[in-house]
Amino acid sequence: MTHAPNSPALIDIHAHFLPPWYVEEAVGAGLVVPDGTPGWPSWSVDDHLRLMDANGITTSVLSISSPGVHFGDDARAAALAIRVNDFAAEVCAEHPDRFDFFATLPLPAVDASLAEAIRGLDELGAVGVAVGSNAQGAYLNNAQNAELWRELDSRGATVFMHPQSPAGWELTSLDLPRSMIEFLFDSTRSVIALALDGTFETYPGLQLVVPHCGAMLPLVADRVDLFQKRMLPAAPYPAGSKRVASETLRDLWYDLAGTPMPTQASALVNLVGDSHVLFGSDHCFAPPALVAEQIASLDEQWRERIGGDWRELTTANAVRLLRHS
């Protein structure tokens, strides 16, 4: 399906790259398939550009998807982060009008992550950083991350959070691909932890992007508000957020990757409004046919269910976010 000739060009905030040597490194670490899916997808710059041209995407912001770069060894994770970020910077330099990238951080190796964030933003031209919803089971509100958040906050940096398989997925995944439901719950768990402990108020400059229409956040926000008001006056959040979660969530950014129509996008906009909603394709893990279906569903249903032009909206929002960063 080819985009309408007069439709606004899209900015894809949730796009992945997958060099063969990265796959080899992951497989060598025992990750034969990513997060229980049937196998690793193929990716190339030329294939990605064809996908963009076919769907009216002018710019894709590249990032590494789950399982990230930390496979259990801090030093190897730091080295792999450097390699993938150098590669992404080269792709962007070769196609400056088509690609940007988020610098991958090797959490939970905090010192290496801080160094790579600074290098990525200052030397490589990254438009933000990419982190997992958890890092070897440690969530983003881990106190060890404070220095990293402080640095990113001082820069007003964009932080693209991608879901990871949670610790203990063997007991909860029901032998299904973890990207089916575990990803949504892990994103939700990580954001709620940050919202409850006051991280977003301590570091108001952080521009966090939550994928997949906010995951489960639109459904659980009211329930979290209730618990904050009635059942969480003490530990583990005695000095946490002064705002209820539903208020905090309005300051975050959200992409539409996944299944935005007919339900998720409406629920998201109902909760947080539309001023921070972004387009995301999830390519290359979402194949071209699926990306085209997703875009077609937005073209067909957004105006009727939500109102306005989703293409103009998400592109304008992405420009604001990327200029801010």
Score class of each variant (00 low, 15 high):
residue 51 L to W: 06
residue 321 L to N: 04
residue 129 V to M: 08
residue 298 L to N: 02
residue 119 R to S: 11
residue 230 R to M: 15
residue 273 G to K: 09
residue 325 S to D: 06
residue 134 N to H: 02
residue 92 C to G: 01
residue 281 S to Q: 07
residue 254 Y to G: 10
residue 185 F to V: 11
residue 287 P to Q: 11
residue 171 L to M: 10
residue 197 D to V: 05
residue 181 I to S: 11
residue 267 A to S: 11
residue 70 H to E: 02
residue 168 G to S: 02
residue 243 R to E: 12
residue 50 R to C: 08
residue 20 P to F: 03
residue 73 D to W: 02
residue 305 R to L: 15
residue 139 Y to N: 08
residue 187 S to W: 08
residue 280 G to V: 03
residue 110 V to R: 13
residue 233 P to I: 05
residue 97 D to T: 14
residue 168 G to M: 02
residue 249 L to Q: 09
residue 215 A to H: 09
residue 7 S to Y: 08
residue 205 G to D: 11
residue 259 T to V: 14
residue 284 C to N: 01
residue 134 N to C: 04
residue 130 A to V: 13
residue 192 I to V: 15
residue 159 V to M: 03
residue 163 P to N: 08
residue 136 Q to R: 12
residue 230 R to T: 15
residue 295 I to N: 00
residue 295 I to A: 01
residue 230 R to H: 15
residue 156 G to C: 11
residue 324 H to I: 04
residue 184 L to R: 07
residue 183 F to T: 03
residue 38 P to T: 01
residue 262 P to C: 06
residue 123 E to M: 12
residue 308 G to F: 05
residue 287 P to S: 09
residue 283 H to D: 09
residue 17 F to K: 01
residue 39 G to N: 02
residue 311 R to D: 09
residue 298 L to R: 07
residue 181 I to G: 08
residue 279 F to N: 02
residue 209 V to S: 03
residue 144 Q to W: 06
residue 82 I to P: 03
residue 246 S to N: 09
residue 146 A to M: 08
residue 246 S to T: 11
residue 220 V to M: 06
residue 145 N to R: 05
residue 145 N to W: 12
residue 275 S to R: 14
residue 96 P to I: 04
residue 317 N to K: 04
residue 76 R to Y: 03
residue 49 L to H: 04
residue 129 V to R: 08
residue 32 V to F: 02
residue 164 Q to R: 15
